[in-house]
């Protein structure tokens, strides 16, 4: 096995291991909960019989490690247990909402990523120009705004004053793609603005960092035009950091939807998670939390692997 394959495999293994650790910790955390879960959920008035029945139903009467393994094998088979609040299968609750969240995040990503990388490149290319400085101030401001501020501002302008888009982003299975794109435009735009700001700054920093390298001066002294210096000499070496920036922001998008979903009452996972946390519906919190954590870890692992592949020192290791 080559060094490269070993590196990639070890990154994958590390990602999976992290996911297990996170799931186990989550489980232990709930385990350490002060007081009795059944009691907390059913309230003080519950009779000992109902409590016992409830515990048996949830499997709370078994040893913790058995329950963890049960739960884990359930997860692997696609069985995430039942919601404490509604009694419905968590898998059913998740499926459509998962699709909705991915739709919204994907919508924003498709628009934000190319714009952000291009803006970052241009800002680096025209460093300290008026464009660069105003982009910097704009990005700093956008990063500083809470998502709900941006969201409500957009609602105020585009739905209340102008009436172009609805205030709420309600979609269901009957909504057509065109309608969905229209209805979810404002939540997507909120995400796009925040993500572009972050990504642009990071891309610019990555490129500028590379532009300070001696081989860039060498390229210029070979008579290479400026655009070609950036595209051919700087960009390939800035790929690893840029890939990381993109992964980080995609991960952020999927997570960042939580607040935006709440503002626009969008039926996604974030909304579900917030409700479940408020009602302390642990199976749902666990399942959604694990999904978000898994996506985040997966994206980071993917970014790691892509960075390794983009590094000629590792790709052509002797």
């Amino acid at each position: 096995m080559t060094r490269l394959q070993k590196l990639i495999l070890s990154r994958l293994a590390l990602g999976i291991a992290t996911l297990f650790v996170v799931s186990a910790l989550m489980f232990v955390g709930i385990e350490l909960l002060p007081g009795d879960l059944a009691q907390q959920i059913l309230g003080q008035s519950a009779t000992p019989e109902t409590l016992a029945a409830f515990r048996a139903e949830l499997g709370l009467d078994q040893a913790p490690h058995t329950r963890y393994l049960d739960w884990l094998s359930g997860v692997v088979q696609g069985d995430l247990g039942q919601s404490l609040a509604s009694g419905r299968e968590v898998t059913d609750l998740l499926s459509t909402r998962l699709a909705n969240t991915m739709f919204l995040a994907g919508y924003a990503a498709v628009i934000a990523v190319p714009i952000a990388v291009t803006l970052g490149l241009l800002a680096a290319l025209w460093r300290n120009s008026l464009f660069d400085r105003s982009a910097n101030v704009g990005a700093l401001s956008a990063i500083s705004m809470p998502e709900f501020f941006v969201a409500y501002l957009l609602i105020l302008v585009f739905s209340i004053k102008l009436g172009w888009f609805p205030t709420l982003a309600r979609i269901d299975t009957a909504t057509s793609l065109g309608q969905a794109l229209h209805v979810t435009f404002l939540p997507a735009l909120t995400l796009i603005m925040v993500v572009i700001a972050h990504m642009m700054r990071m891309t610019r920093a990555a490129i500028i960092n590379v532009l300070a390298a001696p081989y860039i001066e060498m390229a210029r002294l070979k008579g290479v035009p400026r655009w070609r210096v950036v595209l051919r000499h700087a960009l390939p070496n800035a790929l690893a950091p840029i890939i990381n920036v993109i992964a980080l922001n995609l991960a952020y998008l999927i997570v960042g939807v939580v607040v935006v979903e709440v503002v626009f009452s969008y039926p996604g996972l974030g909304q579900l998670l917030v409700d479940a946390v408020a009602s302390r519906d642990f199976p749902v919190v666990q399942a959604v939390g694990l999904f978000f954590a898994g996506t985040y870890i997966l994206l980071n692992v993917a970014a790691d692997i892509l960075s390794i592949l983009s590094n000629p020192r590792l790709r052509h290791a002797r």
Partner: peptide, 14 residues
């Protein structure tokens, strides 16, 4: 131009 450190002055990506 021939630079002091060839290791740093060759682009590692090409």
């Amino acid at each position: 131009y021939v630079a002091q450190s060839a290791a740093a002055s060759f682009n590692p990506a090409h």
